[in-house]
């Protein structure tokens, strides 16, 4: 039985196959309308995330399946002190597959140890969020037509941004991808991402604090939020914040076919006027998120 706890659980071939199915779903949705008839997806959200939960539920409903679950820990047995293992053992009896989000890192691994059905990690604290990474990959593949030979810039909080780390994990296994890491000094990518991932796979990368200078080189720009609480002082935050906000003005020097991604929710790091620009892909990402979750549910349930 296969789970998806971390993006590295899947090989490049498995990811490619899954993205292939997701692409087909995006054009031939009706073909898939009954693929998971009589199957039940449990969405166990020990921590609320309406956006991600709805995406999973919509995915299962579009496959003709059903869903059950809870949307925050207060309405679940875990508020009475029940362990993850026990909750999962029980829910395994009621469902064919489980998507879970939990505030503690590693909770999905614990769940997989006592589950009799496949587990999908829908986010475990600051640790992993592999379906976001699949979403990002599908978006890049759809926009660029390929998943190799391009320059991708990551901008914002590269220190704590888990979506950045796992997308780098996934891209490091592919060929000809160059990474430009754009962040304030305080929020640079941790050393282990460089040594254990990028250096290990011989991935080419550079670091800069200057978004505007980096922009013309990029084929893909992955924006993330710079949060105030990451800074020592408000002054420092205010001083830096504006340099990492994407505006139409800054985009003037970017390639005409650059794709702008963002894991959402956005606060102010991409100004609203960018939304109209054809390079903005972050709302398409949401749609892609549903397609990859459909393909993932089918894959883990062994449905062809």
């Amino acid at each position: 039985m296969k789970n998806l706890l971390s993006i590295t659980d899947f090989s490049v071939a498995e990811i490619d196959e899954l993205l292939e199915v997701a692409s087909d779903i995006s054009v031939n949705g009706e073909k898939y309308a009954e693929k998971c008839k009589n199957k039940i997806l449990a969405t166990l959200f020990f921590e609320p995330s309406t956006r991600t939960r709805l995406s999973f539920e919509s995915a299962m409903l579009s496959l003709g399946g059903k869903t059950l679950g809870f949307s925050d820990a207060n309405s679940s047995s875990s508020s009475k002190g029940e362990s993850v293992s026990d909750t999962i053992r029980v829910v395994s009896c009621y469902s064919d597959i489980i998507a879970m989000r939990h505030p503690k890192e590693g909770a999905p691994l614990v769940a997989s140890m006592s589950s009799t059905v496949p587990i999908i990690n829908a986010g475990d604290g600051g640790h992993n969020h592999p379906t976001q990474t699949l979403t990002d990959l599908l978006t890049i593949k759809t926009e660029k037509g390929k998943l190799d030979d391009f320059v991708i810039g990551f901008c914002g909080d590269l220190k704590f941004g888990r979506t950045v780390h796992s997308l780098i994990d996934a891209l490091a296994m592919r060929k000809g991808i160059k990474v430009v890491l754009i962040s304030p000094e305080e929020l640079k990518v941790p050393d282990y991402v460089k040594t254990d991932v990028m250096d290990k796979h011989g991935m080419e990368y550079e670091e800069t604090t200057d978004l505007e200078k980096a922009l013309p080189k990029l084929d893909v720009l992955y924006m993330t939020r710079v949060q105030q609480e990451r800074f020592f002082s408000e002054d420092e935050y205010l001083r830096l914040r504006d340099s990492y906000i994407l505006t139409l003005d800054k985009l003037q020097n970017a390639k005409k076919d650059m794709s702008i991604l963002h894991p959402l929710p956005r606060v102010n790091e991409i100004s609203v006027d960018v939304d109209k620009d054809p390079r903005a892909c972050y709302f398409k990402q949401v749609q892609n998120g549903k397609y990859v979750r459909m393909a993932l549910i089918m894959k883990l349930l062994g449905v062809k």
């Binding site: 362990s83 993850v84 293992s85 939990h102 505030p103 503690k104 890192e105 590693g106 909770a107 691994l109 614990v110 475990d124 604290g125 600051g126 640790h127």
Partner: peptide, 13 residues
């Protein structure tokens, strides 16, 4: 020692 780790709350692990 990671305070955000599941091992800090899950019993019998």
């Amino acid at each position: 020692k990671n305070p955000r780790c599941i091992t800090t709350v899950e019993q019998g692990i």
